[in-house]
Amino acid sequence: MENGYFIRPESCEGIVEELDCLESLLAELGASFVRRHSFIGTVYAVVDEEAVGKLEERGYFVEPSNELRALYRGASQPSQ
């Protein structure tokens, strides 16, 4: 099953070449979506669990992306 993960090189955070290399690897692993967050040296990708294992084996730090929700309560009372 595919999920979204944040992936970054353990050693050299934010080095452009490292991220290029990571993106190539993600393409090889069949990632269905890839987005680079350059300012924190991290790549977000949607991959399966097998790919996560391979990324971790190669020394990448991998953590799951979470769902965020709007923080309001109660019914609205439109008053026009």
Partner: peptide, 13 residues
Amino acid sequence: GSGSESDAIASVE
């Protein structure tokens, strides 16, 4: 009213 962290990070960027 729900969304992903990756999009939140992209918004901050």
